[in-house]
C-alpha cells in the first residue's frame, strides 16, 4: 500500500487532551545495499493521564518504537507529536526509564546526585531541588539511600532510583522500556504496584513497554498489541478492570483471565506471522 504523507493538521488543536500522538510512523534501518524494515506503519494516540501498555512478541520493534518516541532515533516517515510539538530530538517533557537499570545510572554519582542531575541542568534552584529529590526518593522507598552509589544497591533498588529520577523530572509523559525484565518476580510485583501508585498520585501519562502479557493487563488501562517485524498495530485492547488493583485479587478475577487470554492469543498469532493486511492482500 502506498503510504500517504501525513498531513500536519494544526497539532495545537489536539494538544489539550492528547499527550502523545503517533502518526503513520515508519522506521527502516538503512545500510549501504541492505536495509531492515523495523516498523511498517503505526498510528495511535495516548490521552493525557492514561497508562498505556505496549506488548508484542520479542523482535516486534518495541524498543525501536520507544526510541523513536523518545527522540533518540530518527523516523523514516510519519511523525510523533508530544504535547502538540513534533518530536525531533529528546523532548523536554519526557522522562525515560530504561530496561538496563544498571547501565542507565551514572556509576560515579551517588543515588542523590543521579536524581538531582537533570534538575541541575534545568536550573532548578537548590532548595527546591533538594526537596524534589528527597520527595522522589521517599516516594520509591529509598529515602535513606541517597548517599549510596547505585552499584551498592540491588537490581530492584537500582530500578527504583531510575524511577525516582524520572519522577523528580516531573515529565508530562513517562516512558518505560521493559523496566522490570531483569528483576526477580517478587521485586517485580512490588515495582508494578509502585508504578500504579505513582501514576495515580502524579497524574502523569505513562507508556509502558513490556513483553509480559500478565504485566501489561495488570498495569494498563489499555494494551496495544504489536505484530512481529515489520511492525504494525494488531489490536488496541481496552482494559476494563476496576481502577483499584492488587496483585492477588485483580489477577484472580474472571475478567483479568479473559483479557489475558485474549492478548495471549493475539501474541501467539503474531508470533505465527499473522498480520492484519493478510486479509487485505499479499504481504511481502
Amino acid at each position: 500500500m502506498a503510504t500517504t504523507e501525513p498531513t500536519t493538521t494544526a497539532p495545537e488543536a489536539a494538544a489539550t487532551d492528547v499527550a502523545l500522538d503517533v502518526r503513520g510512523l515508519q522506521k527502516t534501518y538503512g545500510g549501504q545495499g541492505r536495509s531492515v524494515e523495523a516498523i511498517r506503519e503505526l498510528s495511535f494516540s495516548v490521552p493525557r493521564g492514561q497508562l498505556t501498555c505496549i506488548v508484542g512478541p520479542s523482535g516486534a520493534g518495541k524498543t525501536t518504537l520507544l526510541r523513536c518516541i523518545a527522540g533518540l532515533l530518527d523516523v523514516t516517515a510519519g511523525e510523533i507529536v508530544l504535547d502538540g510539538e513534533r518530536v525531533t530530538g529528546p523532548p523536554r517533557g519526557m522522562a525515560v526509564v530504561f530496561q538496563e537499570y544498571g547501565r542507565s545510572l551514572f556509576p560515579w554519582m551517588t543515588v542523590q546526585q543521579n536524581v538531582e542531575r537533570p534538575l541541575i541542568e534545568r536550573r532548578v534552584p537548590k532548595a527546591e531541588r533538594r526537596r524534589v529529590v528527597a520527595d522522589a526518593l521517599a516516594a520509591v522507598g529509598l529515602g535513606d539511600s541517597g548517599e549510596a552509589h547505585p552499584w551498592q544497591l540491588s537490581g530492584g533498588m537500582q530500578q527504583r532510583v531510575a524511577i525516582a529520577r524520572a519522577v523528580a523530572y516531573e515529565p508530562t509523559v513517562l516512558i518505560m522500556d521493559e523496566p522490570f525484565a531483569a528483576v526477580d518476580a517478587q521485586t517485580r510485583a512490588d515495582l508494578e504496584d509502585l508504578v500504579r501508585d505513582l501514576w495515580h498520585r502524579l497524574g502523569v501519562t505513562v507508556l509502558f513497554v513490556t513483553h509480559d502479557i500478565d504485566e501489561s493487563v495488570y498495569l494498563g488501562q489499555r494494551v496495544l498489541v504489536l505484530s512481529n517485524r515489520p511492525t504494525v498495530l494488531l489490536e488496541d485492547v481496552t482494559v476494563d478492570l476496576p481502577d483499584e488493583r492488587d496483585q492477588l485479587g485483580t489477577r484472580g478475577t474472571h475478567r483479568f483471565a479473559e483479557l489475558r487470554g485474549h492478548v495471549y492469543e493475539l501474541i501467539q498469532r503474531a508470533k505465527a506471522g499473522h498480520r492484519p493486511e493478510d486479509d487485505a492482500g499479499p504481504a511481502s
Binding site: 534501518y29 531492515v36 523495523a38 517485524r229
Partner: peptide
C-alpha cells in the same frame, strides 16, 4: 544507535 534487543 540501537544496541537493544529488537533490531540487529
Amino acid at each position: 544507535t540501537a544496541t537493544t534487543t529488537d533490531v540487529p
